[in-house]
Simulated assay, not measured.
Amino acid sequence: MAVLAVVSVAGPLADDRVLVGAPIWAKPLKFSVSFVAYCLTLAWMLQFLTRGRKLGWWAGTVVASTGVIEMVIITGQVIRGKRSHFNHQTPFDAALFNVMGLTVAVLWLGTLVVAVLLFRSGIADRAAARAIRIGAVLGLAGAGVGFLMTQPTPAQRRTPSGIVGAHSVGVPDGGPSMPLTGWSTTGGDLRVPHFVGMHALQLIPLTLMGLVALAVRIPRLRDERTRARLVAVAGAVYAAVLTLLTWQALRGQPLIHPDGATLGAAGLIALAAALGTTAVLRLPVERSGDERTPERATQPVG
């Protein structure tokens, strides 16, 4: 994936074609970078397994293998100048997209197996256990949003065109979009919650690592229970944000043009985050002989 990312960056130098309103090599670049982050994080999480290590190894191998199949099809379609996603224009294109749908489902199930094993493993540090498990669950939810994109749009039902499914809601794919991400600026875009949800896999554990780093200067964060509670607050807030972004996209609303309802919900989430964090920091610190030092909070055990 790392090599493919480099190739995708160099691709436009020799191939300036545009497909569905975006440089044709943008899709393999974004997918390869995303797979690098996803698989490296999953590999790091597998270190924490204390039970079912062999099953975890096989699940991780399945995730990596399905990712390779996915990228071979995406890159092959780029070379052909064809859409990889939602393409049913020819029997061959439809077969390729069906294979992609199958590999995504298998990848999701492989990640689910890892998540279940993480819940069954006895990770000694409560904050680390909570961060890893919450990140895995939210990552699965974010990946699941991708299945919403495979449904035909109302326009596609009225006028079949060989394209079945879309990431934009309320507007055709390929319209005005944000730089870098390519997310729609005129309608809803399911790629937003899909992206945010999947990368909870990295961001929730990174939140814990930030708390551990701050513990050097903030004594209150040296308490393992405090870190675990703050991770729970972060996970709840992240889940609320993911829900809000999905709701916003399904209403056909661009990320950068929220209406009053979206802003009101975002304000309530921010208030809940502030109140939850304050409540945790005001709880008394319970001292115990088995309290682990913050430096060990993200170290694998077993």
Results as ranks from 00 to 15, higher is better:
residue 57 W to N: 08
residue 26 A to P: 00
residue 56 G to I: 08
residue 97 F to W: 15
residue 85 H to V: 09
residue 93 D to W: 09
residue 38 Y to R: 01
residue 51 R to Y: 02
residue 115 A to W: 11
residue 89 Q to P: 06
residue 87 N to C: 05
residue 61 T to M: 12
residue 26 A to D: 07
residue 54 K to D: 03
residue 63 V to A: 14
residue 75 T to W: 15
residue 16 D to Q: 15
residue 91 P to D: 08
residue 71 M to E: 15
residue 64 A to F: 15
residue 97 F to K: 11
residue 88 H to W: 13
residue 92 F to I: 14
residue 94 A to I: 07
residue 39 C to A: 13
residue 62 V to R: 02
residue 28 P to D: 06
residue 89 Q to W: 07
residue 102 L to Y: 04
residue 86 F to K: 10
residue 86 F to E: 13
residue 115 A to I: 02
residue 94 A to N: 02
residue 62 V to S: 05
residue 113 V to I: 15
residue 20 V to A: 14
residue 24 I to W: 06
residue 59 A to N: 03
residue 18 V to F: 04
residue 119 F to E: 10
residue 82 K to R: 12
residue 64 A to D: 08
residue 105 A to Q: 13
residue 55 L to T: 11
residue 113 V to C: 06
residue 63 V to W: 01
residue 101 G to K: 03
residue 15 D to W: 13
residue 46 L to N: 04
residue 42 L to S: 10
residue 31 F to R: 01
residue 101 G to H: 07
residue 30 K to W: 11
residue 27 K to R: 13
residue 113 V to R: 08
residue 45 M to N: 09
residue 25 W to T: 11
residue 98 N to Q: 14
residue 55 L to E: 04
residue 18 V to H: 05
residue 65 S to I: 11
residue 47 Q to L: 04
residue 105 A to G: 15
residue 56 G to V: 10
residue 84 S to M: 09
residue 55 L to A: 13
residue 31 F to D: 06
residue 83 R to S: 14
residue 85 H to G: 12
residue 50 T to H: 01
residue 58 W to L: 15
residue 43 A to P: 02
residue 85 H to C: 10
